[in-house]
Write a protein that binds this DNA or RNA. Structure first.
Lengths: 210, 210
DNA sequence: GCCGTTTTCAAATGACCATTTGAAATATTT
DNA sequence: AAATATTTCAAATGGTCATTTGAAAACGGC
């Protein structure tokens, strides 16, 4: 059945792309994992790059459903929004369900210029950054230059991004395995990260006092 | 002259590897840039991977000389050490001399598993992380679990790492060009980043109060 | 159960690239 | 300057992959 093979290809490709990135993943191994013929990817998707964007769509939908973004911050205020945003990112990174493949895929993409990089960046990544920037601006609450705001947003976002990078890097490393993954109660760790990120913002806010 | 060609290859390869990473760089283009024959890399270095490690050695030496690490922190104290460490990393990232290629190369390597990854990581990256971890531990100054300390170190290091990633990504992007690069006076920006990173540490320290 | 369409398949194609080869050129030694 | 070692060179080799091809198989409407 056609639709079935197409779905199987996406589901088989997702963990492989997330594990090895775009270039290191071969069409052959995806097809093998999906139990499909070597020509299946080109038949169903045209080429490897299109399958890759389908995998993004697939994983992003799953992750967004399991770890939704907080609503806009007009009600809860920017600080609480930032806290919830960060928490949902961290929970997604450290979860071991399918949704966890999404941060993994992002991590791989961030440092590889795949054929679809710009499209993916604009569709899936930039909007989040822009929303966070808005919240950071409102949190600071006074005049701050564009460059300074971009820098601060980058710092804030960098907290979970670099955690993601470190986690992906060491997750399967026997020496580091114990670190976060097998830590039963991840809640206090997440709180510590929140304290760090919000603490950084707080000090910068303080330093901007007139 | 032999030694001459060898040097030329390293110097020509450095900016190319730093720009495109290991895999995307072809031996052919390195040789062309160096004005050498296609066989020169294999003749002088054995293979592409060995040339790559030579480039690491070359750029690391240059960067370390221009932006040295602070001395051990028994005299200046851990907070000042962390501040100086961060500052020297940031200055290196934002400089536009040859030394700036080193963070660029690191950035590329971090997310690509080159044949020499483990060796390079252990030689050039891990020692810095371990030194920073020591300083963070002394800064906190009281009992903190291994996992918590690793996490906090990762957060602190992540500040400049993710800044490096963002900077490398957008440096040549016409829309973002203005952000940091053409900013004449980078000092205040660096101070803001320091405030963020040290502020994060400070809050975590505070939250650990008995 | 026949016919047009869709999907699968194994084998071929062609592009890209690191590395090898062996001869020619250049440098070094005596 | 002859003999030897080193370095350069253009062309060939071989491996890896994405993609194509055209025939076979499965499917769906009638």
């Amino acid at each position: 059945m056609s639709a079935d093979t197409k779905e199987r290809l996406i589901q088989a490709a997702a963990p492989i792309f997330a594990d090895k990135g775009y270039r290191e993943t071969t069409v052959a191994e995806i097809c093998e994992a999906a139990g499909a013929n070597i020509a299946a990817v080109n038949y169903h998707f045209g080429d490897k790059a299109n399958l890759y964007t389908e995998v993004w769509k697939y994983l992003n939908t799953i992750a967004l459903k399991a770890y939704p973004f907080p609503d806009d911050h007009f009600e809860i205020g920017p600080e609480e929004w930032l806290r919830r945003f960060l928490r949902s990112r961290l929970e997604c990174i450290f979860c071991d369900t399918l949704a966890g493949l999404c941060p993994k895929l992002i991590h791989k993409e961030m440092n590889e210029r795949t054929p679809k990089h710009n499209e993916l960046f604009l569709t899936y990544l930039k909007p989040n950054r822009d929303r966070a920037r808005l919240a950071v601006r409102d949190y600071i609450g006074r005049d701050i230059g564009d460059v300074q705001l971009d820098l601060l947003t980058q710092n804030f976002m960098g907290v979970h991004i670099s955690l993601n990078a470190g986690y992906q890097k060491h997750k399967n490393d026997p020496e580091h395995m114990h670190k976060f993954a097998q830590y039963q109660n991840i809640g206090p760790l997440i709180e510590q990260v929140e304290t760090f990120a919000l603490g950084g913002l707080k000090e910068v806010k303080k330093s901007l006092n007139p």
